[in-house]
Write a protein that binds this DNA or RNA. Structure first.
Lengths: 212, 212
DNA sequence: ATTTTGATTGAACAATCATTCAATGAATGC
DNA sequence: GCATTCATTGAATGATTGTTCAATCAAAAT
């Protein structure tokens, strides 16, 4: 492999190994030896490519934030033509296979659990959250305008929308038997339909899970 | 102090010290020496009252689950007379000073971040979640009956309600300047009012925060 | 072909920390 | 009072692990 291509290859290789190890062993049991082994490299390698274990973890979160950010932005951009379709795209993205799988959600919650004590983590999460909510707020603003529902507050709705998504991920983690991707999608759609029945279709199968 | 009273006193003392240390240092930096110091006892003490560090952490989560469980059940029981008032009580409880403060929310997320790899944590969180959602489902069922909204699914609404609450806690952690207790309450009320305008009052100040 | 540069290894080091335990001291039972 | 029980201490231990670095190996440059 060419020398100048190696550096980035190794960085990504180690970051992906880190994600694997977090998913398998958790944050508090993660060791650099495990990361190196998952990357099929030797133990000293991490400190060659990253200043420290903390730096590796920060780079890993940065990687995840970047990937997720590109993902949902692309989803919104591709959706349409109605504004409601863009909000649906955000919802569907959040509960699509690519991100709403057990491994990815596990790792997100591992990072969120540690964010409080790592300013660099905090900054990354804030950026992600703010951007997501800002776009959602703008979309809700347009839906509100279209439905002449001026009494509704788009920022509050966006916050609730975003928060419900994160909370449902937790539910998927803790109660996987009761909350899967499809159920989570239905929950989100139920709220959107309830708030703006003219913009968001009722889920035909909505009432079918009320056996609980 | 009487000998038989000491055991329980020390247990609680150590558990509360553990909560303090988690809040201050985080899960991954928590050491038994710190816990002992916070409890103003000596280093060996934890292994006298708890089988291991893991056992201490499990007992700490159990303590928090117990306290929170008694708290929201008491709130629901005391609220009324309308069904809607009981749901409002759940919401107000979740964003009252006692639980929706920075320290408590921090520690909850620290535990959730680790839950995935600790079956005992998982079981405790599942029980809490299930009970909360079961009661919320029952309350939504009654609200649906009162409003002749048979097309609504109470279980889905309860899941969304509960998830939004957890997600807003995360927002309070990550973005404390944009999301405080009062904002979170408004978010929750906005959704309830939007879904069942006849049962949940519109927040007079709802539209005042849309400057963002 | 030879030299130089830089990636990679893995053993060694130093620090941290959960756990153990012999010693201490205070409360309880007699 | 005396003996006994048991809570508590804090130093010692052993295991784990992040980090360093001298040695090795392969690619690039001359």
């Amino acid at each position: 492999m060419a020398r100048d291509a190696i550096k980035e290859t190794r960085r990504v290789q180690l970051i992906e190994a880190t994600i694997d190890v977090i998913a398998r062993a958790g944050f508090s049991d993660l060791t650099l030896a495990q990361v190196a082994e998952a990357a099929r490299l030797s133990t000293g390698i991490v400190n060659f490519y990253f200043k420290s274990k903390d730096a590796l973890l920060a780079a890993t979160l940065e990687h995840m934030v970047g990937e997720y950010g590109r993902y949902w932005r692309a989803n919104v951009a591709a959706a349409g033509p109605r504004v409601a379709d863009k909000l649906i795209a955000m919802l569907e993205g959040d509960f699509g296979r690519l991100v709403a799988n057990r491994k990815t959600v596990t790792v997100w919650y591992a990072f969120w659990g540690e964010t409080r004590w790592r300013p660099d983590f905090m900054t990354l999460c804030q950026g992600l959250n703010s951007a997501f909510q800002a776009v959602a707020t703008d979309l809700f603003r347009q839906v509100i305008a279209e439905t002449n529902a001026a009494e509704r507050d788009p920022a509050l709705l966006a916050k609730g929308f975003s928060a419900m998504s994160d909370g449902l991920w937790l539910d998927m983690l803790i109660n996987p038997k009761e909350t899967d991707r499809e159920t989570a999608r239905r929950v989100m759609r139920a709220f959107l339909h309830g708030l703006f029945p003219s913009q968001f279709a009722a889920d035909a199968s909505e009432a079918s899970s009320s056996a609980a």
